[in-house]
Design a protein around this nucleic acid. Structure first.
Lengths: 167, 167
DNA sequence: ATATTATAGTTAGCTAGCTAACTATGTCAA
DNA sequence: TTGACATAGTTAGCTAGCTAACTATAATAT
C-alpha cells in the first residue's frame, strides 16, 4: 500500500509540476490521499484484529467459510476468493488448523482435493471478533451520512473505472 | 491493503447483519470498496513503476531526495518520511546505490551519520519515470471533474478523522 | 573527566506474501 | 488402455517489510 508518511505539500506539487508539465496536482493529491486513508484504515483493522490474535489473511478465510451454508470450502476456492496463491493458502490453513479454527477433511469423490471445514471454535471466534469489528467500523464511519456514503461509492466507482489507464 | 477479491454481496451483508446486529451495511460496503479501489490503485502503480525497473519503496526515496534543494538527506530522515524503519531504509539505499541512483557520502561533522545524495543518474531516472507516472495518473483521474475531486478530499477527510475509533 | 544515556547506521533473523517445481490424482483423446 | 495434459495441494526458496541486538559516535550529568 502507501508507506509514504510525508505527503507532498501544495508547494512541492507545484515545484514538481514546473519540471513535469504532465502533472495534474489535484489528481495527484486525491490519489495520494486515497491511498493514505486506505492504508491507515487497513493498519487500524490489523490493530483491531490483533487484539483477537488474528491477522487479516486468516480472518478473511474464516469469514469466507462462514459465508457458506455448510461452513465448508476448499483451499483452491478460498485462495481465489481471498486473492492469494494456493501456496499461500496452505500456510494460512496450517495456522488456522493449529489453532483449531478449521479442520482439513479428505474428500472421497476427488482424492486430490481437501475440504476445509469451519469448526465450532472457529465460529465462536467469529462470534467474538465480528461484533467488535462491526461496532468499531460503525463508529469510524459514523460521521458519513447516507448521502455522503452514496457519493463515496460513486466517486470510487469512477476512479475504479480509470485504473486500467494507470497500468 | 485488502487481499480479498470476493467482496460481500448485499445478500451476504444482510445475512451477517442478521447474526451481528452491530453491522452497518453501508458503512461496511463503503469501507471495503475504499480498500479495494486503493489496493488496485497501488497494484497499478507497482505495475507502472516495474516497467521502469523500480518498486514503490525505492521510487519514493528518489522523490524524497528530489524534494530537497540539494538532493541530499540522511537515512534516518528518509526512513521517517517514507514511514519505514531505519533497518529497512538500509536495504532500500543498498539497492539504489548498486544501481548508481544515489551515493552514500560520509559526513565529517557527525561521524555517525551518512549523507545520501541523489546522483545525476538518479535524477535522470526520475526525469523518465515521473512524466510517465503523471501522464498515466492524469488519465486515470480524468473522469473526476474539479467538483468531484473536492468532494473526494472532503469525504476522505471525514473518514480519516474516524480512524482512531477503529483501532 | 568520565560514566551514562541517546542517536545513526547496520546486521541477523522473523513474517506473510510470492513463484517455481514437485507429487498425486483425474480427464480425455488416440 | 494408455499417454498427454490438467488440476489440487504442498514444499522450497525468494522478497520487502519488521524487530531486536549490535557498533560507533555524540551529548549530558555527575
Amino acid at each position: 500500500m502507501l508507506q509514504l508518511r510525508d505527503l507532498p505539500t501544495p508547494e512541492i506539487l507545484d515545484k514538481f509540476a514546473d519540471r513535469y508539465p504532465d502533472a495534474d496536482v489535484t489528481a495527484i493529491s486525491g490519489f495520494l490521499y486515497l491511498l493514505r486513508v486506505a492504508t491507515d484504515l487497513s493498519l487500524a483493522l490489523d490493530a483491531c484484529l490483533s487484539k483477537h490474535d488474528l491477522l487479516q489473511g486468516r480472518w478473511w478465510v474464516l469469514i469466507l467459510l462462514m459465508r457458506e451454508e455448510s461452513g465448508i470450502s476448499t483451499p483452491s476456492i478460498l485462495a481465489d476468493k481471498l486473492g492469494v496463491k494456493r501456496a499461500s493458502m496452505t500456510g494460512l490453513l496450517d495456522g488456522l488448523e493449529q489453532h483449531g479454527l478449521v479442520t482439513r477433511v479428505f474428500a472421497k469423490e476427488d482424492r486430490r482435493s481437501v475440504k476445509i471445514q469451519l469448526t465450532s471454535a472457529g465460529q465462536a471466534k467469529l462470534d467474538v471478533v465480528m461484533p467488535d469489528y462491526y461496532r468499531r467500523l460503525r463508529q469510524c464511519m459514523q460521521a458519513l451520512d447516507e448521502d455522503k456514503r452514496v457519493q463515496l461509492q460513486q466517486l470510487l466507482g469512477i476512479i475504479h473505472k480509470g485504473i486500467p489507464a494507470l497500468i
